[in-house]
Amino acid sequence: MRKLFGYILSPIFYLLFGIIITVFHPIQWICLKLGGYKAHKKCVDVLNCFLLCTYYVLGNTVKFTNRQRLPIDRPILFVANHQSMYDIPPLIFFLRKHHGKFISKIELAKGIPSISFNLRHGGAANINRKDPKQSIAEILKLANNMKSKNWSAFIFPEGTRARTGKIKPFNVGGIATILKKVPNVLVVPVAINNSWQMVQYGFFPLNTFTRMSWEVLPPIEPQGLSPDEVVAQAETRIREKIN
């Protein structure tokens, strides 16, 4: 029955999603040109609020839980499991005061209205997985901005999406680079549940009436720990929260 509703509601979802990213593309450009980073950042926050609201068209729900008192005067590295592309708008919107930037595939930085523009101009690290030197340079640039501008970052250390919700082993690479270059960074795990169900049938139809959740877990102070220990702690905490 949920799949049947997916056939009915998915076209409406995609229509609204497409309208939103198309309309916000020129708005982002205007905000960036006239108001600089601050105006562009506010525009991106509003964009992602609209995008996560489209989930409700499918009868899906978003529950974002953050009981942690996270500082705003130091950079944060948010480490999350990755289940679908729909993981992203709630992270951006609900954690917007931390100025989080994504480490993403370079392929996403072109061809997608609004989303590609933000990745190119919003401070993300757009990495080419086939070019290690380019990837390291992008992550180093992000790390320098985190240190100088007090930005935060989001990273999915599994590398690819867990299409059945089962967590894959976490990679240390990108996290280790940021830990080394941003000595005062705070590591914060985020557990994402059930967003994979939204795309369990693939691109079409999308699934319906799915209860999705994002939970910010207790921070990890990396001082005195090796990158492997930090990643192991984050992975363990996230695994304990996954349904």
Rank of each mutant, 00 (worst) to 15 (best):
I12M: 05
M198C: 00
N207M: 02
N184C: 07
S116R: 02
G122S: 04
I12A: 10
K38T: 14
I8L: 15
N194D: 11
S135C: 04
V187H: 10
C49Q: 11
I175M: 13
E138C: 04
A80H: 03
S213V: 02
I72T: 12
L16F: 12
I20P: 12
R211P: 00
I139R: 09
M146N: 09
Q197T: 01
N66T: 09
C43P: 04
R239K: 15
L52I: 13
I220D: 08
K168R: 09
F24N: 10
K241D: 11
S148P: 06
L9T: 00
F17W: 14
S104L: 07
L142C: 04
N81M: 07
A232W: 00
P183D: 06
R161I: 12
G165R: 08
I175L: 15
I178Y: 06
A143G: 03
K180D: 10
L142V: 14
K130N: 13
I106G: 06
V79R: 08
T210F: 01
T208C: 11
F24K: 01
G174K: 02
P75S: 12
N184K: 15
R237P: 01
F203K: 14
P71L: 06
S10K: 03
W151V: 02
Y201K: 10
A109M: 09
S226F: 10
A143S: 15
L95Y: 05
L142Q: 01
N81K: 10
S10Q: 03
L9H: 01
N48S: 08
A80I: 02
F117I: 05
C49Y: 14
W196D: 13
F94R: 05
E158A: 01
P169W: 03
T164R: 10
I76C: 11
R161Q: 14
V46S: 03
F154E: 12
I103Y: 01
Q223R: 14
G122R: 09
I139Q: 04
V46H: 13
P26N: 07
I21T: 12
A124K: 00
N193F: 06
F64A: 08
A143R: 07
V230G: 04
P132S: 09
Y7L: 10
F50E: 00
P90F: 06
A80E: 03
W196L: 03
P89Y: 11
F17M: 15
K41I: 03
R69C: 06
I167A: 15
L108D: 05
L34S: 06
K3W: 03
I136R: 08
I238C: 11
F78W: 05
I8M: 12
N66D: 08
V172I: 15
A109G: 15
W29Y: 09
P222G: 09
R161W: 13
K33L: 02
R161Y: 09
F156W: 07
S10D: 08
L9N: 05
R2N: 15
I27Q: 01
A176Y: 08
Y37K: 14
P26K: 13
F156D: 03
F5N: 03
R2T: 02
G6T: 13
K33N: 00
D45Q: 05
A162K: 05
P11R: 13
L70E: 11
L179S: 09
L15W: 00
I127K: 11
D87P: 04
R69Y: 00
M1V: 14
H99A: 05
T54N: 15
R67I: 10
P11H: 09
I20W: 10
V216F: 02
P90I: 07
G159T: 03
I175A: 07
P113N: 14
W214K: 00
